[in-house]
Amino acid sequence: MEIAESAALVVVDVQQGFEEEAYWGPRDNPEADRNIARLLDAWQPSGRPVVFVRHDSLTPDSPLREGYPGNAFKGYVEERRGRGPGPELFLTKSVNSAFYGTPDLDAWLREAGVRQIVVAGIQTNMCAETTARMGGNLGYEVLFALDATHTFDAVGPWGWRLSARELARATAVTLHGGGFASVVRTEDLVASVA
């Protein structure tokens, strides 16, 4: 795997509110946070760009709403902000895609000469997937770190239920099979950056 010197790590919505199991329900991939931390610990010393994305929910009872403690980044993310010598961007959004946030992610990446992005974060099949899809549509080479994401069980139309694991697998198949992104593992990314 080739990781460009300008490749940006996009860390999506790694916020304290996602720890509120009573709100979200069962989740998958207990190793996600460890893998996100590993990516940050590889990326920052390399001088590559890092983007920290925070979801400011407009839903009044959401654990991610502004002014609520759950809106803050998880501790291990917050303590890593500003630690690397490379460019860093903090952006907020209220929709799924980080490309519809403030400031403008696409403009920042293009100005920095970034053509390759790595997406990690929460939730696999929601904001992380939407950011990856849109990145692919905008012409970026997108690497989706599946094991550095997690999601929650969900209920859809007609009472259809899918487990978090099933949803994560569907995301991987859709992104990979649809040509939006290459689905990769944290271990391979870290080895390629070192």
Rank of each mutant, 00 (worst) to 15 (best):
V53E: 15
A132C: 06
I36R: 09
K93T: 14
G136S: 02
D153E: 03
P103W: 00
L58Q: 02
T102E: 12
H55K: 01
G156Q: 07
H150T: 13
E78V: 01
N137W: 10
R161Y: 15
E66N: 01
T130W: 03
S46M: 06
G139S: 01
G135F: 12
H150Q: 10
N137Y: 11
G136C: 02
D41T: 07
H55Q: 08
A164Y: 11
A72Q: 15
V142Q: 10
L162S: 12
R48D: 00
T124E: 03
S62N: 03
M126E: 07
W158R: 14
A98N: 06
E78I: 06
L64N: 01
R161V: 08
W43N: 07
L109C: 08
F73W: 11
S94Y: 14
S163F: 09
R38T: 00
D61S: 07
D104M: 14
Q116T: 05
R48H: 06
A98I: 13
W158P: 03
T131N: 05
M134F: 12
K74G: 10
G113D: 14
F73Q: 08
R165D: 15
G82L: 02
R80T: 02
A37W: 02
A132M: 10
D41C: 07
R110Q: 10
I36H: 03
E66A: 11
A112Q: 15
E66F: 04
G156Y: 14
A148N: 08
F99C: 00
V77G: 07
E88G: 12
E78K: 07
L89H: 02
P49Q: 12
G159H: 14
L146Q: 01
D41V: 09
V119K: 04
N71E: 01
F90P: 06
C127L: 04
R54T: 14
G75C: 06
H55L: 06
G70L: 09
A37H: 04
P87V: 02
A120I: 07
M134T: 12
P60F: 08
D106E: 01
G70K: 06
R133F: 11
T59K: 08
M126C: 08
G135S: 03
E111N: 01
L146H: 13
P49K: 02
M126W: 15
A132D: 00
S163P: 13
P85L: 15
F99W: 00
A145L: 00
G159N: 11
N125P: 04
A128G: 03
F90L: 13
A164C: 08
S97P: 01
A42S: 11
K74T: 06
P87W: 12
A132L: 07
S163I: 03
N35K: 09
E111V: 12
D153L: 02
H55E: 07
L91M: 13
A154G: 05
F73H: 14
G135H: 02
R161Q: 11
L143R: 13
G86L: 09
G159Q: 13
G135A: 08
